[in-house]
Computed example of a mutant assay.
Amino acid sequence: MALCTRMCLWSVVSLLAVAQVGCCCGARRNQYLTQAQLRNQQLWAQNRALSMQRDGFGGNVGQLQQENAALKQNLDLANQRLNNLASSNNQLEQRVQDMLVSANRGNNPLSDDMTRKLEELRQKYPEFEFDPRTGVSKFHTDLLFELGSDQVRPDAMRVLQEFAQIMNHADASHLNVLVVGHTDDKPISKSTTRARHPTNWHLSTDRADSVVLALKKSGIDEKRMGAAGYGMFQPVAPNTNDANRQKNRRVEIFVLAPDAVVAGWDPAAHSTR
């Protein structure tokens, strides 16, 4: 009887122990499930937020692309307008140039084409001047000569050759050329220079002669040319500073019509030689 009683008690204790273990495992499982559900909810919320951000960025990118396309179109239109304005400007400048030439046809014996060519030469060489109203060309002597010299600089021969090519063109081959030299007011100081050019008169005429000979070498018939010198007595600016003196040191080339008589120029003498 005691044995039976002890066995019954052992069975009850065992059942109670199993029940306790089962309850403990179930509680832990429920806890894990709850944590997993919370984690899933957090991940879902994060994923949703990222999706919304991605959609927002996509919309911004599309808007920026549209704005860039509009800006590019506006820039293209602005560039086209600038090109049109530049073209209109060039046309207006050419018209003004043509009007000047036409209005002064009595003073400028050059044709429109020759005037344009000399204007292009002026733009190419800053030290070369050309007046489209009169057809007078000017070379600053600093371009043509060393200080106190009448020897044409080798690098200056290029502009004289191009000038000669223009003057030998069919439209200008009948015109005459008068080369005139000018100096500033400073007397010849170096003894070596005075040995060749005692005065500014000598220097101005010697330089005019050198340009004539250079033009002859470049192909202009010497019968079409003449040379003169004015020394320091025909300044274009007061001889008060170095900049003005540089302007006064110049060689001018006058293009003359076939019937022009200047300083004793007699066109008829060409045919008698």
Rank of each mutant, 00 (worst) to 15 (best):
N40L: 15
G181A: 08
L3M: 15
K247I: 11
A27D: 09
S271T: 00
A208G: 07
A156T: 07
F128Q: 12
P187L: 04
Q161S: 14
E93V: 10
N47I: 11
L213F: 10
S271V: 00
F163D: 06
A269P: 01
I166H: 03
A172D: 00
N108P: 03
R81F: 05
R39D: 09
R196C: 06
M167Y: 00
D185Q: 10
Q123M: 07
N108H: 03
A195D: 10
R133M: 15
Q94P: 04
A86S: 09
L77R: 08
L215N: 04
L71A: 08
R133V: 06
A260M: 09
N40H: 12
N107G: 03
T192R: 13
Q63A: 11
L64S: 07
Q65Y: 06
L85M: 10
R207E: 12
T240H: 02
N60C: 11
L110G: 03
F145A: 06
C4G: 11
A208F: 00
T205N: 12
S149I: 00
A19W: 15
F57Q: 03
Q73I: 02
A237R: 10
R273E: 00
D113N: 09
L143W: 07
A228E: 01
V180C: 05
P126G: 13
Q234D: 06
L38G: 08
L75R: 05
E252A: 07
R153I: 01
V255T: 05
E93A: 14
R158K: 14
L50K: 11
H270P: 00
Q20F: 15
C24I: 15
Y32N: 15
N108Q: 04
L50Q: 13
S204C: 09
V177D: 00
A70T: 07
F163P: 04
N83C: 06
S14N: 13
V177K: 01
